[in-house]
Amino acid sequence: MKIRYFAGAAEAAGREEQQIDDSLTLGILRQRLAEQHGAEFTRVLARCAVLVDGERLGDDARVPDTATVDVLPPFAGG
């Protein structure tokens, strides 16, 4: 699956995207990303929306290895 990081999530992860060749639940994916990218990313991830192919899913949902996952922090603006 392709993971795309936006704004503060990209900054905390130190990259804008990465590839993971596995099918996981969303909860396990969140856990793996937190372990890979450290404490600052974990703090940011807790506030992010995570969309799988444009949809919000629960942590028990399976994310296929063909999916695109977007990690979107809250945006300010007007």
Results as ranks from 00 to 15, higher is better:
residue 26 L to H: 02
residue 27 G to N: 09
residue 27 G to Q: 04
residue 27 G to F: 05
residue 28 I to S: 13
residue 28 I to V: 13
residue 28 I to C: 11
residue 28 I to G: 12
residue 28 I to P: 11
residue 29 L to W: 02
residue 29 L to Y: 00
residue 29 L to G: 01
residue 30 R to E: 05
residue 30 R to D: 01
residue 30 R to N: 01
residue 30 R to L: 00
residue 31 Q to G: 15
residue 31 Q to S: 15
residue 31 Q to P: 15
residue 32 R to F: 04
residue 33 L to K: 13
residue 33 L to R: 13
residue 33 L to Y: 10
residue 34 A to S: 06
residue 34 A to E: 00
residue 34 A to Y: 02
residue 35 E to G: 09
residue 35 E to Y: 01
residue 35 E to S: 10
residue 35 E to H: 03
residue 35 E to I: 03
residue 36 Q to R: 13
residue 36 Q to S: 13
residue 36 Q to L: 11
residue 37 H to Q: 06
residue 37 H to R: 06
residue 38 G to W: 04
residue 38 G to Y: 02
residue 39 A to R: 04
residue 40 E to K: 12
residue 40 E to I: 10
residue 40 E to R: 13
residue 40 E to F: 07
residue 40 E to D: 14
residue 41 F to C: 15
residue 41 F to N: 14
residue 41 F to V: 15
residue 41 F to A: 14
residue 41 F to T: 15
residue 42 T to Y: 05
residue 42 T to G: 11
residue 42 T to C: 08
residue 42 T to M: 04
residue 43 R to P: 13
residue 43 R to F: 08
residue 43 R to I: 12
residue 44 V to Q: 14
residue 45 L to C: 03
residue 45 L to M: 01
residue 45 L to N: 02
residue 46 A to G: 11
residue 46 A to M: 06
residue 46 A to Q: 06
residue 47 R to S: 05
residue 47 R to H: 08
residue 47 R to A: 06
residue 48 C to V: 00
residue 48 C to M: 02
residue 51 L to M: 06
residue 51 L to K: 11
residue 51 L to H: 08
residue 52 V to D: 05
residue 52 V to A: 08
residue 52 V to I: 06
residue 52 V to Q: 04
residue 52 V to P: 11
residue 52 V to T: 07
residue 53 D to L: 07
residue 53 D to Q: 11
residue 53 D to V: 07
residue 53 D to I: 08
residue 54 G to K: 09
residue 55 E to A: 13
residue 55 E to I: 11
residue 55 E to M: 10
residue 55 E to F: 06
residue 56 R to M: 06
residue 56 R to G: 11
residue 56 R to H: 07
residue 56 R to L: 05
residue 57 L to M: 01
residue 58 G to D: 11
residue 58 G to V: 10
residue 58 G to H: 10
residue 58 G to S: 12
residue 59 D to Y: 01
residue 59 D to N: 07
residue 59 D to C: 04
residue 59 D to T: 04
residue 60 D to V: 03
residue 60 D to A: 08
residue 60 D to R: 04
residue 61 A to D: 06
residue 61 A to P: 09
residue 61 A to K: 08
residue 62 R to H: 05
residue 62 R to Q: 06
residue 62 R to D: 07
residue 62 R to T: 08
residue 63 V to M: 00
residue 63 V to C: 02
residue 63 V to R: 03
residue 63 V to D: 02
residue 63 V to H: 00
residue 63 V to G: 06
residue 64 P to Q: 01
residue 64 P to A: 02
residue 64 P to N: 02
residue 65 D to F: 01
residue 65 D to C: 02
residue 65 D to V: 03
residue 65 D to A: 06
residue 67 A to C: 00
residue 68 T to Q: 14
residue 68 T to E: 14
residue 68 T to D: 13
residue 68 T to P: 15
residue 68 T to C: 14
residue 68 T to M: 12
residue 69 V to T: 08
residue 69 V to D: 09
residue 69 V to Y: 03
residue 69 V to R: 09
residue 70 D to L: 11
residue 70 D to Y: 05
residue 70 D to A: 14
residue 71 V to L: 07
residue 71 V to Q: 07
residue 71 V to T: 11
residue 72 L to R: 09
residue 72 L to G: 12
residue 72 L to E: 06
residue 73 P to M: 12
residue 73 P to G: 15
residue 73 P to V: 14
